[in-house]
């Protein structure tokens, strides 16, 4: 059928469950097939805590290298940051802050989405 755009939607906080890291792995994985599907990673709800600049990324370093190589967008929802009192200066440099409206558009634009 061909290449798909896939939104990886990470809603759960690190590190209490493995969903954050398995979501990050799936983002790399969906691009690994013959058709090289295009992933976008979206952090929202308690998933936004993964975007803090001091968070330990040790178990996901290889995935972040892949995102860099593939030009994968890593986005976080501003309203969900605000709700948790997190300001943009607290975030890692490779994360793009987007509005909830823009996140809504991502759901429309992508062919499929996966929740973690």
């Amino acid at each position: 059928m061909g290449e798909k755009k896939v939104l990886i939607n990470i809603c759960r906080a690190p590190f209490g469950t493995v969903f954050y890291t398995e979501g990050l792995r799936a983002a790399v994985g969906v691009s690994a097939g013959i058709d090289e599907n295009i992933p976008t990673v979206l952090f929202q709800s308690d998933g936004v805590y993964y975007c803090l600049k001091n968070v330990d990324r040790t178990d996901a370093l290889a995935y972040f290298q892949s995102y860099k190589d593939m030009g994968t967008a890593l986005c976080v929802v501003k309203e969900d940051l605000d709700e948790r009192g997190i300001s943009e200066v607290e975030l890692a440099d490779d994360i793009t802050v987007i509005s909830k409206e823009k996140a809504f558009e991502l759901f429309q634009e992508n062919d499929f989405n996966m929740d973690f």
């Binding site: 059928m1 994985g29 969906v30 691009s31 097939g33 599907n37 499929f112 989405n113």
Partner: peptide
């Protein structure tokens, strides 16, 4: 299998449920 299998599954699907 591996995640490349998931990737191919995604490519071939009409609908994706997680």
């Amino acid at each position: 299998g591996g995640l490349p299998d998931l990737a191919d599954m995604v490519s071939d699907a009409d609908v994706f449920i997680s």
